[in-house]
Simulated assay, not measured.
Amino acid sequence: MVLHKGERDGGTVLIVILENQSLGILYERMPDVDGRRKWRVSKSQVIDNKQEFEDYLSRRMQQDPDVWIVELTVADRERFVRDNLSAG
């Protein structure tokens, strides 16, 4: 599901992964020491404070209106990340 539509050609993409409808993990492409941009966890939802995660996403949208935020529900987060995001 697209939570926020950003700039069509240049917006940053953030991916929120929900594993089996549980807590969200936010991934974004971050620069590495070798200059490549790799997918990294930038925020994890805390079970006792789910609102804090939603507030963080709202702040990111306010700071960067061009950002895309996409939410994916997957059965196995580690496998999904390995198979789809590990290549950078």
Rank of each mutant, 00 (worst) to 15 (best):
M1D: 08
M1F: 15
L3N: 10
L3E: 08
H4G: 01
H4L: 12
H4P: 04
H4I: 07
K5C: 11
K5D: 14
G6K: 04
G6F: 06
E7W: 08
R8V: 15
R8Q: 13
R8H: 06
D9F: 05
D9K: 14
G11K: 10
V13M: 09
I15Y: 06
I15Q: 00
I15H: 11
I15D: 01
I15M: 02
V16R: 01
I17C: 10
N20G: 03
S22W: 11
S22D: 10
L23S: 12
L23A: 10
L23P: 02
G24S: 13
G24L: 13
I25H: 10
I25K: 07
I25C: 03
I25M: 02
L26R: 08
E28C: 09
R29T: 05
P31S: 06
D32W: 08
V33R: 12
V33P: 05
V33S: 07
D34G: 11
D34I: 04
G35R: 01
G35L: 12
R36F: 00
R36M: 13
R37D: 12
R37I: 05
R37L: 13
R37C: 06
K38L: 02
K38W: 12
W39F: 01
W39Q: 07
R40E: 11
R40I: 04
R40M: 14
S42F: 07
S42K: 01
Q45S: 03
Q45G: 08
Q45L: 10
V46M: 12
I47K: 06
I47T: 11
N49Q: 09
N49T: 10
N49C: 13
N49R: 11
K50Y: 05
Q51L: 00
Q51P: 00
Q51I: 09
E52Y: 11
E54M: 09
E54W: 15
D55I: 09
Y56D: 10
Y56H: 09
L57S: 02
L57M: 08
L57K: 11
R59L: 13
M61I: 11
M61F: 13
M61T: 05
Q62G: 10
Q63L: 03
Q63C: 11
Q63Y: 14
Q63G: 01
Q63K: 07
D64H: 05
D64Q: 05
D64S: 08
D64K: 14
D64E: 09
D66P: 15
D66G: 13
D66Q: 07
V67H: 13
V67Q: 11
W68I: 08
W68S: 11
W68P: 03
W68T: 03
I69L: 04
I69C: 15
V70Y: 15
E71Y: 11
E71R: 09
E71K: 09
E71C: 02
L72Q: 04
T73M: 11
T73Y: 03
V74N: 05
V74Y: 00
A75S: 15
D76Q: 06
R77P: 10
E78P: 04
E78F: 08
R79V: 07
R79G: 10
R79T: 15
F80L: 03
V81C: 05
V81A: 09
R82H: 08
D83C: 03
D83M: 04
N84D: 00
N84V: 00
L85Q: 02
L85I: 06
S86A: 14
A87V: 15
G88K: 00
G88P: 01
